[in-house]
Design a protein around this nucleic acid. Sequence first.
DNA 1: ACACTCGTGTTAATCGATTAACACGAGGGA
DNA 2: TCCCTCGTGTTAATCGATTAACACGAGTGT
Lengths: 350, 350
Amino acid sequence: MSEQPTLKSVAAAAGVSTAAVSYAFNRPDRLSTRVREHILAVARELGYPGPDAAARSLRTRRAGAIGVIFTVGLSYAFSDPYVLAMLSGLTEVTERTRTGLVLIPFDLTTTGLGEDEVRHSLDAVHRAVIDGAVADGLPDDHPAVLALAARKIPLVRSSETASGRCVVIDDREAGREIGRHLAALGHRDVAMVVAYPEPPGVAVPVVDEAALYPYSRLRLAGVREGLGPHARVRVVSAGRNAQESGRVAAASALGGPDVPSAVAADSDVLAAGVLDAVRLRGLEPGRDVSVTGFDDVPAAEPAGLTTIRQPIRDRGRLMGRMLLDPGFTARRVVLPAELVVRSSTGPAPR
Amino acid sequence: MSEQPTLKSVAAAAGVSTAAVSYAFNRPDRLSTRVREHILAVARELGYPGPDAAARSLRTRRAGAIGVIFTVGLSYAFSDPYVLAMLSGLTEVTERTRTGLVLIPFDLTTTGLGEDEVRHSLDAVHRAVIDGAVADGLPDDHPAVLALAARKIPLVRSSETASGRCVVIDDREAGREIGRHLAALGHRDVAMVVAYPEPPGVAVPVVDEAALYPYSRLRLAGVREGLGPHARVRVVSAGRNAQESGRVAAASALGGPDVPSAVAADSDVLAAGVLDAVRLRGLEPGRDVSVTGFDDVPAAEPAGLTTIRQPIRDRGRLMGRMLLDPGFTARRVVLPAELVVRSSTGPAPR
DNA sequence: ACACTCGTGTTAATCGATTAACACGAGGGA
DNA sequence: TCCCTCGTGTTAATCGATTAACACGAGTGT
């Protein structure tokens, strides 16, 4: 009753070799039913819960779990509808294969740190016992991505990568669609609200575009191209991908001397904040100021938000299959994305 | 460049013992800076990503991760606002301690199976490399709970347990409050809509109450007590905790010969469906039929739902601290819950 | 000069399993 | 009878680390 029983102690108690006990649990057909059942009976009697998870992972080099890692803090992630849809798709396939899903936290601010500090802040990335990982939104050179790569852990990403596998949409073309849509409505002065990794703060800077998320850069570039060379595009951000950031960023853009006629947000979550800001100034979205989003999360439709629809759940599902389904060998899947026009966009005023 | 480097190969390449390499990564102060840096340099050169996670977990008997297990399928869980709030609180503390969070899937239907089938369907529970686990809503005798207990994994539950730790609310007293509130409004015929583990279906049975979730039983008992001995209470369910189930169950209750004057739901999610059903019949909640929920999720307020408020995030936080914070030794924490009256309840008609 | 601590590195046991290779007896075909 | 196959169980190497105990040389106080 003292120590936790092990394979060895069960073997001893049952009068067989450890191999036999192992087979009893993992390869029923290798043993005669008589012996096998005797072993299981003894195991049950001793309260042996089956082979130890860590030991098994070490020996077989398989964990039965995959990791997930986001650009946002975990405690925030659960309020991001994009993340939720993605996770829901992903868990559909992990559930089917009885695979665990390890949510890996890491310090979001791992720039300008020494080797030790980075190691430390990536603790969970190093300790995660996983067979593969899904990294959504992380840039190629993100410490967590590098760490997983060093561990030779199969990685599926959500943005184009040189090597490695990914499930993407054509963010740039989607951006172009937004741009063309706005241009066709006569908008020549557009503010683009983007999420920014570093300061989850309140300030509203114009942005160092190299530091943006990969998808942001592409969408931004696309919007510019779609609007054409004669439009003015300013880029603002108030931190992470949250409604509040969208509100703050848009409030600043709309509060300046010459207000843009349209605000294009990097995501629907940001766009929701933009809509708030527009209304707070007594303006009406789609008439006084046009607003666009990205993703088409569930809340977009009731909000009347013009946006880019992408199949988020499918993305999750596919990322999961890439890791878990051996028959699924594609290195790169491109998902369709389409413009959905609603009431938040309209002809430019004047 | 062929094989993944190990502690051993790094030691060999650096001309030191494996112990030294281990210390270099785990106990910097055990080594002189010279040697340590030499080791790290060699490690980097070989592309050694640091000590292997599985091996380390085996040797140290610590995983740096905790598990979570729900009464609902994972892919559904991400649309349940209660679950999201709980997870958000939980991840607040796991993030702070750089602890991974393992979402453990399991077959929801593990009744009436042989030892082998149960083992198989609990695969992920057995394979999870974790130091502790949070089980929200699961009954004492749930196979997953038993499996975790057999593994001697510290468990924190959300319902009262004989032994073991838990973070609870007084579900029964909360139920009483609902009952008293309805009784005071003159309601003597109440339908209680509850979530039911087994059939995630469309049928609307009267229920075998022993099979209900522990919290459902308590809430139900409380409602009965609060209503007093002269009220009629019927119990209906249409499967899992989802808006759709609430709608179906309520539609059936309201479609019968003598309709109840109030419908008390087991959760706000169900209550949302009840509200749908009420409106679908052309009735007005709070006037024609009173409706109550449980939990006070974010959507409850805009819906005008009378409900029991409980601090869900706090629950997540506390469950996390129970597992992760050594200074937190309480075996049992009771969280406050209070009735929040909104427009969905009113005097009984006639 | 002696006995000490202290800092630094090594030796070697150990965590709990998996599985290739082998051994051995029974049955089967020629 | 001999040889082979097949089914069933065992032997023993291995997965990749951690850490208590020890060894050794350099300071240090008296």
